[in-house]
């Protein structure tokens, strides 16, 4: 009996006509390869939308499916099946890369669930420029860097600039370097805190109904924004410290 995933629709196998979940790479009934579908990455692995996933099982399934999709296995298959094995491999790789990474997985799921990240989902085509600006402006307001960090971020940037200037003059200020090291440590710690909060929201989202998921999605978007900002800073400091 087919277990229908909540995030896919059942489609009929091209060969045996038995229904299976969209994005299933092989028919569970006749084992024939299926054409790549427009289903989502979760369903490629037979998963429903969840943020807490078993990474070991995901990796195992990835290897198992990769082997089954290997072109050598389709040497005597029809042209269609040969093409599908390549396209399915590409889909499988994309799906695996996205799902195994906690941040990409979160971003991807939020996108699937209709939450807008960063850039507007609606393409700003030929609509009036002013309207677009207002739209973008409204989005900006929902994705601000928390005021609690602005002062520190600004000071850190000042120190980075000072450091770069000193470098240019061939000077090295050990005190400045030390204070940058401390700042880096602090910001790395803040990234860790964001990751812990993110995981807490995963669990709320996974276990919640639509009403509980909404605030969790908002919280995750804010956390991803904050994380992006913090890791950019850490990257800059790391670069200049050269360690």
């Amino acid at each position: 009996m087919l277990k229908v995933l909540e995030n896919t629709v059942p489609v009929a196998c091209w060969s045996c006509s038995v229904a299976h979940n969209e994005s299933t790479l092989f028919c569970p009934d006749c084992s024939k390869i299926q054409p790549p579908s427009s289903g989502d990455f979760f369903s490629v692995f037979g998963l429903e939308h969840r943020l807490n996933i078993d990474l070991a099982a995901l990796e195992q399934e990835f290897h198992r499916l990769s082997r089954r999709l290997h072109p050598d296995r389709f040497a005597r298959a029809s042209e269609n099946e040969k093409d599908w094995s390549l396209a399915d491999t590409a889909l499988l790789n994309d799906a695996y890369r996205t799902l195994k990474d906690p941040l990409r997985r979160t971003e991807y799921l939020l996108k699937l669930e209709g939450a807008e990240m960063g850039v507007s989902a609606a393409a700003p085509s030929d609509a009036a420029l002013v309207q677009n600006q207002e739209k973008i402006q409204n989005q900006q307001k929902t994705s601000r860097v928390p005021a609690d960090l602005l002062g520190e971020v600004f000071d850190l940037n000042m120190q980075l600039e000072e450091m770069r200037m000193a470098r240019k003059m061939g000077q090295e200020d050990p005190e400045l370097k030390e204070s940058l090291r401390q700042a880096k440590e602090k910001f790395v710690g803040l990234v860790g805190a964001v990751d812990r909060e993110l995981r807490a929201q995963w669990t709320i989202w996974d276990g919640g109904d639509a009403a509980a998921r909404q605030p969790a999605q908002q919280a995750m978007m804010a956390l991803l924004d904050r994380r992006k900002y913090l890791s950019n800073l850490v990257r800059d400091v790391t670069e200049i410290l050269g360690d």
Partner: peptide
């Protein structure tokens, strides 16, 4: 006034 934009890391005073 101290403001920042998260997508690019810009900070402005």
């Amino acid at each position: 006034g101290l403001v920042g934009a998260p997508e690019c890391g810009d900070v402005m005073r």
